[in-house]
Nucleic acid binder design. Sequence first.
DNA 1: ATACTGTTAAACATCAGACCATCTATTTCA
DNA 2: TGAAATAGATGGTCTGATGTTTAACAGTAT
Lengths: 237, 237
Amino acid sequence: MPDQITKRNISEMIVAKIVRSIEQGDFIPGSRLPSESALMERFQVGRSSVREAMQALSIMGVVTIRPGQGTFIRADSKAAFFAPEVLAPLVDEEVTQNLAEAREVLEPIIAELAAKRATTDDLCQIQELLYTCERHLKINEPLYELSAEFHLLIAQASHNIFFLRLLQSIIGIMAARGARIEENRAFLQWELESHIELFLAISAGDGLKSKELMTTHIQSSAMRYLDMRRESEEIDR
Amino acid sequence: MPDQITKRNISEMIVAKIVRSIEQGDFIPGSRLPSESALMERFQVGRSSVREAMQALSIMGVVTIRPGQGTFIRADSKAAFFAPEVLAPLVDEEVTQNLAEAREVLEPIIAELAAKRATTDDLCQIQELLYTCERHLKINEPLYELSAEFHLLIAQASHNIFFLRLLQSIIGIMAARGARIEENRAFLQWELESHIELFLAISAGDGLKSKELMTTHIQSSAMRYLDMRRESEEIDR
DNA sequence: ATACTGTTAAACATCAGACCATCTATTTCA
DNA sequence: TGAAATAGATGGTCTGATGTTTAACAGTAT
């Protein structure tokens, strides 16, 4: 007798159906999902099951739940395997260092892949982002988010969705933990130049150079961050 | 007036408290968590909130829920960042290939780290596992699980818990998806020899060699797997 | 006209109680 | 003694009620 797979939880079945609908384009990223009561009717289940499914999707970073408004499908560039805000409290100092180490080895590989696989569209998005960064730097607007976005766009250009989601999770968790970097002008200037250099290597399809540039970029970025932290601590004294 | 951060969900607060209790040793891995009704009383909340928290912990791979029995804290070696059984339905063929690619680049790095950081205890565990493999191979007992365990023990020896959890997730999802490899004796023999060679390089602390061996091991393993699959498909015809 | 304010409706958050399915352990009976 | 029946515990699901948050609208004062 087949049908043995029907052993899953109701909420898991709902999760699978919704994910499939998103993949098939029935639900568009950024749009609102039907309300809980509507989903109850559609799937002929109780509210608990719908809520468990929504929560699962939320934790997995597929949707964002906004009380009073509804449940929204996350835009793809924001899709993490885990919602950082849920995971961050679980992460202690040791794991944060592990994350940093993982990022150090992952990002160069991702950059190498991106150099090999980036489409014209990918490159245009990155270039546009860099222009925006320049503008913001000139008028002293904050650009921390933009810097993170740069790294994510590269991951997107690697055309490995797992890497993209992974990096999104790592960056999200680290941002949720570490005090946000102070907007030191010299640092930002250096970072932008470094990003532009990386962009050029990726555009040229030079995998090896992209990998090396990303390695040094991540490492010096971490070092500069630590330096600044030490300085501000000294000032505190 | 501060106090603005007290905005979190009730279920998230419960999640944080339970995780902290596990870290502090109040709950021991492998043991049973208090029942839902007990947790209701302890935290003075409704059952929905407790259940949402339990579900979140389950998805994140912190606990395993067994209907009729209770909720159990996962042993550390089994801890994934997310429960493969939950994620697997979301993963399609493309993502599976992404996962394989990720594994190809991650495992060599992990092996390199392991060669640098493995403690005597780590090495003993691996050696013991290899002995068990030899025994199972002689009497023709299945050893698929053991093979996966070998890779996880190496990740454990890398002393980067994030890598360990990541690899556990990847292997778990791939196992949940791909048809389990057939227990072809020639393949198993080759695999064991390959594992032993890797173990020796790691024991010797030879990072570079470990990395290279792992690279070729993963790649040939994938190739042999595809070969076998093709053969069995031809037989099917 | 503009800006502020109160109301309302929709949506999610939480609670409470009930019933079902499954598993464990115990009890019961042949 | 051993197998079958049973009771209790536990998670899974449904339902109804109430609280909070948000957006949108309408009304009022400036």
